[in-house]
Design a protein around this nucleic acid. Structure first.
Lengths: 352, 352
DNA sequence: CTTTTTTGCACAATCGATGGTGCAATGACT
DNA sequence: AGTCATTGCACCATCGATTGTGCAAAAAAG
């Protein structure tokens, strides 16, 4: 089956072995041989030889020549987070089902890093790019534009390229309503009992805060500014905000909305420093789903963003080619406490 | 700064602009110009032009010529899991700090998929490959070998290539001891009160089970086979195992060791179907760390595997070149319940 | 048995960068 | 002035695949 030659076979090797020219071999192996009127028998012969020698095309050479690499990029803020890693998982599956090769990279929410990483990807002639959660989508857009690279924004919208994002406003409304109703089961809820932690000056945070405030005002009649605590997207900062509140009030708010699972990690850091029992009665809403976060020792309502649908929509937009810079909304779902959703892990092969 | 030309500048463009030959431009831009005795002034001129036109090398062309791509691969079972995603994060950082480009892909624990994915990576002429948690490391090894691709196994060892793995035996001992001691605080623990769920027929599972059994026998005097429930690495299967135990006993074991965070998700699925209070007194050990898993409503001891150190060691081995197929152990750490460790997320830029 | 058409394939340029080789111009030295 | 070493760079083949073009041989048409 496999020969012992150290180097990988090329079309030239097969050309010699088969007696055909390299261009014929190439045509046979890349499927364009019918168009080139290659005899069926010749094609068979070459294909057999190729199998026998374990030929696989050198994709760098192909990419160089055709200026298409078969690579599709996904730019993430971080891997280490269930929302983004499950997005990576869906992305991979979809890219591969299209016969391309996924390239997932992270850029730490640093605008310079984002642009630089994209420059690198462009140097590899990637064919398409999904820009997820970029701090500066429009900056990245310009880099792509200059290189003629097709791209969409996912999760955080830009103004210059088509975007697919979660319906943050609706999601936040659902989540806020859910935690308010749940809190009211335990007694009347004052506006001061409902806070929001996390998020910063990005579109998603704005929309979530807007949804939160709208529902809060509608259901509780008031919405003091002090209840909004945008801490950025860092566990450490978020923990500090909880700590500050605790210093001031001797407890946490009865109910609060956490802007993302990354911010929810900040809550864990806070909890680690305080006895469990003190916070047994809080009710939390988290804009993101995490299977363990759902089972914390207090009710945690979560929002599951449909990253799979976002990726699908993203491909649709790229395939349509040159769509206007419209923002498409994908509806997320509310996940009640103590819920274990199935996910990409369930696709794991695990016979036994 | 940036010119409006649609196409990316090449060394030929700069060659014309500068009046120098393409090879001179190439030498200047790839840093080998001193060796080639290019005049400083010429180099300056070309570098200025390059900046002005935003030149970046076409890495496919470079890779084709030099048969090195600057790509380093990491093959994972899945993204969607804190252990692997944090490994991806460390990997990325280290690869980038070495001036290369990380390529993270998953293969769903499917041996065929693993080999096929690696074939694809090889077609892109990747320079090095980290094989993490492969079902069939030796199969992948052969594919790499044939292509002359340097590689190491991470997490699950192979017999044909150097491997860097967690010290599963020691980790399992620490974890088992911790949960036993903790359980004994609540009263005497019988061997029947301590189970192990998850894992399958791989090296890591074997070692963990061995560590578990050794400590259990030493501390509790007995170690019935029935207490070992290898369910594979699937949340669904694991949930079924918990369900089965529950059917038979009307409760869960007082104390149990869960083989990985993926299996721990299985526990969540079980819990979702049963009232919270029934299981308030269980004590769990999980071989993997997850920041939310650490705060579940019962004590969860966790093992944090040092994926960063494993990647570092992996690079050391690759750099040493052609090491023997030895397995290197990296010590994991025990994480007590309710602990929020800092991680890659803390490196996020988040000014504000 | 020509002429035309179709079939089947080879040739060669090309993608962008690299690196070995060679050669003219300059300077150093006798 | 003549020899030799050094400097500074251009030339060209090469990596492996793609693709437009051209041209024999075979088949069909006249």
């Amino acid at each position: 089956m496999a020969d012992i030659s150290k180097k990988k076979a090329t079309i030239y090797d097969l050309s010699i072995l088969s007696g055909a020219s390299a261009s014929t071999v190439s045509a046979v192996l890349n499927g364009s041989w019918r168009k080139r009127r290659i005899k069926e028998a010749t094609a068979q012969l070459i294909q057999n030889l190729a199998n026998e020698h374990g030929y696989t095309a050198n994709l760098q050479a192909r990419g160089l020549r055709s200026s298409r690499s078969g690579l599709v990029g996904l730019l993430l803020p971080v891997h280490d987070n269930r929302y983004f890693s499950s997005m990576a998982q869906s992305f991979e599956a979809q890219v591969r089902s299209r016969g391309q090769c996924p390239l997932v990279v992270s850029a730490c929410r640093d605008p310079d890093e984002e642009r630089q990483v994209v420059e690198t990807l462009i140097s590899y002639s990637i064919d398409e790019l999904f820009i997820a959660g970029a701090t500066d989508p429009d900056g990245v857009h310009k880099v792509c534009e200059k290189a003629g690279l097709k791209h969409v924004n996912i999760d955080l919208p830009g103004t210059l390229a088509p975007s697919v994002i979660s319906d943050n406003y609706e999601g936040a409304r659902m989540l806020t309503q859910a935690i308010i109703e749940r809190a009211q089961e335990d007694g009347p809820l004052s506006p001061d009992d409902l806070y929001l932690f996390g998020g910063r000056n990005d579109h998603a945070s704005h929309e979530r805060i807007r949804g939160f405030r709208d529902v809060k005002r509608a259901l509780l009649g008031a919405d003091p500014d002090v209840c909004i605590q945008p801490t950025g997207y860092s566990p450490a900062m978020t923990a500090r905000a909880f700590e500050a509140f605790y210093e001031g009030h001797g407890k946490l708010p009865r109910t609060f909305f956490v802007n993302s699972s990354i911010n929810l990690e900040g809550l864990m850091r806070f909890l680690a420093l305080h006895p469990h029992e003190t916070f047994a009665d809080i009710i939390v809403g988290c804009y993101d789903y995490d299977p363990f976060g759902s089972f914390l020792p207090f009710p945690v309502f979560m929002i599951r963003q449909d990253s799979e649908a976002m990726i699908t929509k993203g491909f649709a937009i790229l395939d349509a080619d040159r769509g206007p810079p419209i923002t498409h909304l994908v509806r997320p779902t509310l996940v009640p406490p103590r819920t274990a959703l199935t996910g990409p892990l369930d696709a794991l092969k695990d016979i036994e």
